Computed example of a mutant assay.
Amino acid sequence: MDRTPLDLTQDAALLTAQLVDFPSESGAETPLADAIETALRTLPHLTVDRYGNNVVARTHLGRAERVILAGHIDTVPIADNVPSRLDAEGVLWGCGTCDMKSGVAVQLRLAQSVPEPNRDLTFVFYDNEEVAAHLNGLGHVAEAHPDWLRGDFAVLLEPSDQQVEGGCQGTLRVLLRTKGERAHSARAWMGSNAIHAAAPILARLAAYEPRYPVIDGLEYREGLNAVRVEGGVAGNVIPDVCTVTVNFRYAPDRTADDAVAHVREVFADCGVEEFVVDDHSGAAMPGLSHPAAVDFIKAVGGTPQPKYGWTDVSRFSALGVPAVNYGPGNPHLAHKRDERVETAKIWACEERLRAWLTS
């Protein structure tokens, strides 16, 4: 476990490796947050604040525009993929290389090496992004210190393979419960099987046809899926409760209330006796027509893509700050045991952002 102080002057790929070697699974980010705060406090052009394991650093140059560069410092559980490993082809392997310590490394390099940007900058490093929404550190900062997050435009350095990704899907998790009556399985006619009662729910899911709406020229793909089924008491008991956990990934043209109403409607006649919203994070519109977004896309190049998944672009959108996803790393490699990132893409991302902030 690396506890060497972070060296923000080193190559971004080497800095990524050092960040990976600070294990920081969700809920255990303190050592890494300490290291980031300590390193940033050595930079005289930044004001550094901390709230919990969330670190915010800002310039105060009086520029006409303020841009926020944000990234989470936690990872999913380590899967025998720490410490990091750099292979002969220039690929860096390890937990968090893609999601999203390479993006965090780019943030830190820019914080150190761009003391007089053409826009005022806010750097946000936050915890608990990979877990339930109520634990999310960016949300905690927004509630306690909303002034720290004021800005005109935000870039979330989530892995996007250096493509601008607009908006994000909403994610809704619902518990659908059916109920019955317990009985001895030898006398099943004396009870009512709650698992059997869940069959209409599963049939409705299997037949569900998702929408593919086009918003601001980007096609989003919705999905409604069972992600867990729980029921049963013992091998000789007719179960009296069954819970089907359903995840709805929805396009940003739906509000949070619309999403809940839609799921209720889908299962309205399926014998659901309890409908419980277990977790919910709203979607964000692309916002690519905003002048700051137009300038950003022109600067970094590429063709904007929709974001398949939820990111904290949604939180910035709720704060009135237009935001996009843009970072190194292939998002399809996030959370995998063989998670990895090409070092060339880390360098390229850093240089494109540096050019945008200094031209």
Rank of each mutant, 00 (worst) to 15 (best):
Asp240Phe: 02
Val300His: 00
Asn247Arg: 07
Pro252Phe: 07
Asp240Ser: 12
Phe248Lys: 01
Pro286Gly: 04
Val237Pro: 03
Ala293Gln: 04
Asp257Asn: 12
Val246Glu: 02
Asp279Arg: 02
Val227Glu: 11
Ile238His: 02
Arg228Ser: 14
Glu230Gln: 14
Ala226Ile: 11
Ala299Gln: 05
Arg221Glu: 15
Val260Ile: 15
Arg249Asn: 12
Leu224Val: 08
Asp240Ile: 03
Val246Phe: 04
Ala292Ile: 02
Val229Gln: 13
Pro304Gly: 05
Leu288Val: 04
Gly223Pro: 01
Glu265Leu: 11
Pro291Lys: 06
Lys307Ser: 07
Gly271Cys: 11
Thr311Asn: 06
Val237Asn: 00
Val244Phe: 04
Arg221Asp: 12
Gly235Ile: 07
Val229Phe: 10
Pro291Arg: 08
Gly271Pro: 05
Thr243Ser: 13
Phe275Thr: 03
Val237Thr: 15
Tyr250Lys: 07
Val263Pro: 01
Val244Trp: 02
Gly309Asp: 04
Ala299Met: 10
Val241Arg: 15
Thr245Glu: 14
Ala299Val: 05
Phe296Trp: 02
Asp269Thr: 15
Pro291Met: 07
Glu265Tyr: 08
Gly301Asp: 09
Val241Trp: 08
Arg249Ser: 03
Phe248Ala: 07
Gly302Phe: 00
Arg228Val: 13
Thr243Ile: 06
Phe296Tyr: 07
Gly223Lys: 13
Glu219Lys: 11
Ala226Lys: 02
Ile238Glu: 05
Gly309Leu: 01
Asp278Met: 12
Leu288Pro: 00
Gly302Lys: 08
Asp257Met: 10
Asn225Glu: 13
Phe296Ser: 02
Thr243Leu: 09
Gly223Cys: 13
Ala256Asp: 14
Met285Pro: 05
Val276His: 11
Thr255Met: 10
Ala283Thr: 06
Lys298Ser: 11
Gly309Phe: 10
Pro239Cys: 03
Ala292Arg: 13
Gly232His: 01
Ala283Glu: 04
Pro291Phe: 09
Pro306Thr: 06
Val241Asp: 13
Asn225Ser: 14
Ala283Asn: 09
Asp253Trp: 02
Val294His: 12
Ile238Gln: 00
Arg264Phe: 09
Phe248Gln: 08
Ala293Ile: 00
Glu274Tyr: 05
Asp258Glu: 09
Ala292Phe: 07
Asp269Ser: 11
Ala226Trp: 02
Ala268Gly: 05
Asn236Met: 08
Gly301Lys: 03
Arg254Glu: 11
Val266Ser: 03
Phe275Cys: 04
Lys298Glu: 11
Asn236Ile: 08
Phe296Val: 03
Leu288Glu: 00
Val300Phe: 05
His262Ser: 00
Val233Ala: 13
Val227Ile: 15
Glu219Asp: 09
Arg221Val: 14
Asp253Phe: 10
Gly231Ser: 02
Arg249Pro: 00
Val263Glu: 09
Asn236Arg: 12
Ala261Trp: 10
Lys298Cys: 05
Lys307Met: 14
Ala259Tyr: 07
Glu230Pro: 00
Glu230Asn: 13
Val263Thr: 13
Ala226Phe: 01
Asp258Gln: 11
Val300Gly: 00
Val244Asp: 01
Pro286Tyr: 04
Asp278Phe: 10
Asp257Ile: 10
Val229Pro: 03
Asp295Pro: 08
Val266Phe: 06
Val276Cys: 01
Pro239Ser: 05
Thr311Ala: 08
His280Asn: 11
Val233Ile: 15
Gly287Asn: 09
Lys307Asn: 04
Arg264Pro: 07
Tyr220Trp: 11
Tyr220Pro: 05
Pro306Phe: 06
